Amino acid sequence: MNISISHQDDTLTVRLDGTMDYTVTSQMNGLITDINSITASRVVFDLAKVGRVDSVGLGMLHLAKDEIVGKGRRLTLRGAAGNVRRLFELTDGDSSFDFE
């Protein structure tokens, strides 16, 4: 999975591209560490180019949310569509996360 981070004003945008599955665990852990080192009150995960999320990927998003929200920040998911959005609906993630 490719990850890019941009920071503008008080918003940190993380663009994810690829598949979020068990193979991205260490990448996501590193991403969470990177996010914690950047000052921003809002974090946006752009999932528009994510084609698939499995249970491990979903768990990593929940872990990221817990870290971000635990630091008093707001997390928003953007661009989740198709099967990715459906996964959130099936797992009640649509009520756990804020979506754009």
Rank of each mutant, 00 (worst) to 15 (best):
K65D: 08
I5H: 07
M1N: 11
L16M: 06
G79P: 05
A81V: 12
V53K: 01
D34G: 13
N83M: 13
G57D: 00
H7T: 08
E100K: 11
L16Q: 02
S55G: 05
V69Y: 06
Y22S: 14
L63A: 07
G51E: 02
I3C: 09
F88C: 03
G18F: 03
G18Q: 04
F97S: 09
L16E: 03
T39C: 14
M20A: 12
E100N: 13
T39Y: 08
G93F: 03
V84Y: 01
R78T: 13
Y22D: 10
V14M: 02
I68P: 00
M20V: 08
L87C: 08
I68G: 08
R85Q: 12
V44N: 08
Y22A: 14
R42Y: 08
F99A: 00
R86M: 10
R74D: 14
I3G: 09
R85A: 15
D46K: 04
T91C: 05
V69E: 10
I32Y: 04
T19K: 08
I68S: 05
R52Y: 15
V84W: 03
G57K: 01
M60R: 10
G30M: 05
T33F: 08
L75T: 09
D34F: 04
G72R: 05
M20E: 03
V53I: 10
D34P: 11
L90C: 13
I35H: 06
G79N: 02
I38Y: 09
D92V: 12
D94N: 13
A80G: 01
V14C: 04
T33C: 09
D66E: 14
T76Y: 08
L16C: 11
E67T: 09
S95N: 09
T23A: 12
R73I: 01
R78H: 15
A81M: 13
T33K: 13
L47D: 01
I35Q: 04
R85H: 12
R73W: 00
R85K: 14
S4E: 14
V43H: 01
D21V: 02
L61G: 10
F97T: 08
A40N: 04
R42D: 13
G79S: 03
T33E: 12
T23Q: 10
T91Y: 03
N29C: 11
N29F: 10
L31A: 12
A81F: 13
A48D: 10
H7E: 05
M60D: 09
N2K: 15
L12Q: 02
S26Y: 11
I5Y: 05
R52A: 15
I35T: 11
D46N: 14
M1P: 09
T23C: 11
L47T: 03
D98R: 11
F99D: 00
R74H: 11
S96E: 15
F88E: 02
L75Q: 02
L75Y: 01
K65G: 05
L77N: 03
